[in-house]
Design a protein around this nucleic acid. Structure first.
Lengths: 194, 194
DNA sequence: AGAAGGCCATACGCCACCGTATGGTTCTCC
DNA sequence: GGAGAACCATACGGTGGCGTATGGCCTTCT
């Protein structure tokens, strides 16, 4: 719940607005991206906004691009650059990515607004990139392509569902860190079963 | 995309409005539930709405209650009333429920609006009921309580994720029915592994 | 120092939606 | 077949958000 827009910075950048838009999406979905309320949160007015952006749509585009890069490019780069056993890499990907998902609510919010064309396009790219990464990991782990794809789909579905649970009804998820570890172990065991 | 509100029925019931609200939620999230557009779709005016409901909030409550009953009570009743091997019941639950999920977009839309108190409450009840059912199935299948709970969580996460994928980027899911069968087999195998 | 342009506040018209008020239809039941 | 209730349309004021216009400040460069 950190609100980085509090510091008394006078002049705002385009990125400040995009970031605020992402915060709004996480909090209330696409519909929550409204220029005037955003301006209020940033202690500015529409005058500032409409200098940086042509309109609300342009802001959405910028926010989506920002999210897409942050949640795909960065993580995927980190994992592919990693070495070690496939099982280890899978484990690290999961722990890493689950941590991110539990903090960031933008993804779930966007999934609900897949009706919007631009959102659908961004989701499509992100989804394929992520699944592609997981498929590669399973293939490295020795699964045949078709089987690897199925397992990757299952793994990614479980990831998405976990992210949803984490931000909608987190109480049902294991809280204590030992329980979390046991759960992760079990998930990995199931996902990598014969 | 069936729009059941087309038939030239003159007078509307409370349930007609609730149903239209659910359709709107599925299409555009909570924010899409707007009285006047809904009235237009139903070929009526606000005059009708405000006779049946006190305000927009009352409509949301009614819609949520309707969804909650439909997606919990009904399915759970059907499965618990079922007999047969645990594995069979699990399989039938999955096929049954995945079919529903792929058609109905209300769940994903609500997950994105968990910020709303009433939505959170409904989600909490639905989530617990569903997970409870799955836990019971895994226990019947011979898993110890803790392990059954972990597996149920994984299964339910996968289900949620699958629902998300089905309505946001369905292209990544297996399309042909043989592929779907192979995928389902693999998922069941993974979920019920040692 | 002063001019130019980057950055922002204020004020305005517009539209979509909410909720209310009020009067008209259309059922239902005797 | 007429009274009362159920149901609905129309019209209205209020609010919040979008986008534009315009003028002012603040920085930067010369």
């Amino acid at each position: 719940m950190a609100m980085p827009e509090q510091n008394p910075r006078r002049r705002l950048s385009r990125d400040d607005w995009a970031e605020a838009a992402l915060t709004a999406i996480a909090a209330g979905g696409l519909a929550a991206v409204a220029v005037e309320p955003l301006a209020a949160r940033l202690h500015a007015t529409k005058g500032s906004f409409y200098w940086h952006f042509a309109n609300r749509d342009a802001l959405l585009d910028a926010a989506l691009a920002r999210w897409e890069e942050r949640t795909t490019t960065d993580v995927i780069g980190e994992i592919t650059a990693m070495d070690g056993e496939p099982a280890d890499r899978l484990r690290r990907l999961i722990t890493r990515v689950v941590g991110i998902a539990e903090r960031d609510a933008v993804g779930p919010a966007l999934l609900a607004t897949a009706a919007d064309e631009r959102v659908a396009a961004a989701l499509d790219r992100v989804t394929r990139a992520r699944i592609g990464l997981i498929v590669a990991l399973f293939e490295d782990a020795g699964f045949a392509p078709a089987a690897a794809h199925r397992r990757a789909l299952l793994a990614y579905s479980a990831y998405l569902g976990h992210a949803e649970l984490a931000h909608s009804t987190p109480q049902v998820l294991p809280q204590a860190s030992e329980e979390r570890r046991a759960y992760l172990d079990d998930v990995l065991r199931a996902l990598t079963a014969p």
